[in-house]
Nucleic acid binder design. Structure first.
Lengths: 114, 114
DNA sequence: TGCGTATTTTCGAAATTTCGAATATACTGT
DNA sequence: ACAGTATATTCGAAATTTCGAAAATACGCA
């Protein structure tokens, strides 16, 4: 398989590799929302949210449309929702093992912060 | 949706957010391989490969089994192959736009290296 | 033009990721 | 116990990501 394709996949995964950005993608599941609506619904800090939007835009996970004062975001391709749904099933399929994995990850992070 | 689930998804995406790790996952598509086989097939540096294996193991993307001298890796759940295949279709569905996006990303990286 | 609202950009610090070099560990055969 | 092979870990430097604070930009309206 081509190197280019692998790099592309890595870029997409990287774009999705943050809980906030996943929340954004999921919020857009049912259609476009303005930046402000996303920020409000998800309880984000304004500047930080905008930076996450930039990441998603730069990898073309979302597209934006300007309407007067505001910017509306939507998913470029709903296939990414499919991916999230697959992972949801994956999460529950291995629930108990997943939970202990998540606990471990949290503990590692707690340690690194000291 | 739960915060925990979102964090989990982000962890998985993060685990896959590197071309080398994607190559590893794809190499395991048809069954387990030893660390050495992976390194040879993919032309990786030994220590670096081992570090990537650690990432994949820590997020339970792969599981390992020890057999004598060697360690055999396999995918925990083939559902992840599905995810990669979805992205492959996504790549080709938007091919021309994707290629120019990848070119832009390469240029940004080239700039940052100066 | 000037004001208010919506959004993005820039800056700097902290945390995380990535890599190669060197070292360590584990297992096998002698 | 020793040597050899397979794999993992540690270390330090460079690159990247993340965040909040502050500033900048864009648009609509008086």
């Amino acid at each position: 398989m081509s190197d280019e394709l692998r790099r592309f996949k890595a870029e997409i995964f990287q774009a999705l590799a943050h809980p906030t950005r996943i929340a954004v993608v999921e919020a857009l599941r049912n259609g476009e929302l303005s930046a402000g609506q996303l920020i409000e619904q998800l309880g984000l800090e304004q500047a930080n949210a905008s930076q996450h939007f930039t990441v998603l835009r730069s990898k073309s996970v979302v597209v934006s449309r300007k309407k007067g004062n505001q910017v509306f975001y939507s998913l470029r391709d709903p296939v990414l929702i499919e991916v999230l749904d697959i992972l949801k099933r994956y999460f529950y399929a291995h629930l108990s093992q997943t939970m202990s994995m998540m606990k471990e990850i949290r503990m590692e992070k707690a340690v690194s912060k000291k």
